[in-house]
Design a protein around this nucleic acid. Structure first.
Lengths: 110, 110
DNA sequence: GACTCATTTCCATATTTCAGGAATCAATGA
DNA sequence: TCATTGATTCCTGAAATATGGAAATGAGTC
């Protein structure tokens, strides 16, 4: 994960609707969700949604697979974790003020 | 930390030069760094740098204090940690694939 | 007060991003 | 093959962002 990738992922998430899409896909789990269903759920035009899904895909934060006529999107947790580790380690140099709260979260959920 | 704040912080970091500024300030530590020195170090016009520092300030990722003629900027680790916790807990719902690597980083550095 | 230095504000320009209508492409079934 | 459905690409106009020159502000110094 170099800086370029990090910036790409950050900007993909740095927008209301795209962050919402990402969260929706997290909720959907590994099964994912069809492009059309995402658009419907978030009340967005299909082509607009397609563009937003492309941005998230290019950032590798989500993956696409075809299933019949539908294209199913699902989150790539590895990429997301890569971003978070980058921000924590490389960017913040593992500062205690950042690490400690994360450790608490991790302990709670793993 | 609501979604709005998260988006604001993400977009503040979602740019090459601003991410570089942030990392420079992390390196500088709590002592911080004067606006002019940052601009010089990153070879940017003073007014351009001022605008970028404003964006980071508005996102609360950095703080400003005056010292004599200079204005010293330093990172606000609490805000950054807030963002990371938000992304991990709220956004990724504490998914194990995300939490586990973070736990490893936290263990290594705290 | 006059002067300098550090930084910011104001303004204009170039670039990027966002959103959706219309057309196109891909898969399926009649 | 034709029609239908799900999704994407192409295109355009509107809005936001990035950058830096010029002027203004604020804080020290003589």
């Amino acid at each position: 994960m170099d800086t370029q990738d990090a910036v790409k992922r950050l900007s993909a998430l740095a927008q209301d609707s795209r962050l919402e899409v990402f969260r929706l896909l997290v909720k959907a789990g590994p099964g994912g969700m069809a492009a059309g269903d995402i658009a419907k759920k978030l009340k967005t035009a299909a082509n607009t949604m397609s563009a937003q899904l492309l941005v998230l895909s290019n950032a590798q934060l989500i993956r696409a697979r075809r299933e019949g006529r539908s294209i199913i999107y699902s989150v790539d947790f590895e990429a997301m974790s890569g971003l978070l580790v980058f921000l924590t380690e490389d960017c913040c140099r593992g500062a205690a003020e950042v690490c400690a709260p994360l450790a608490a979260v991790a302990k709670r959920c793993c």
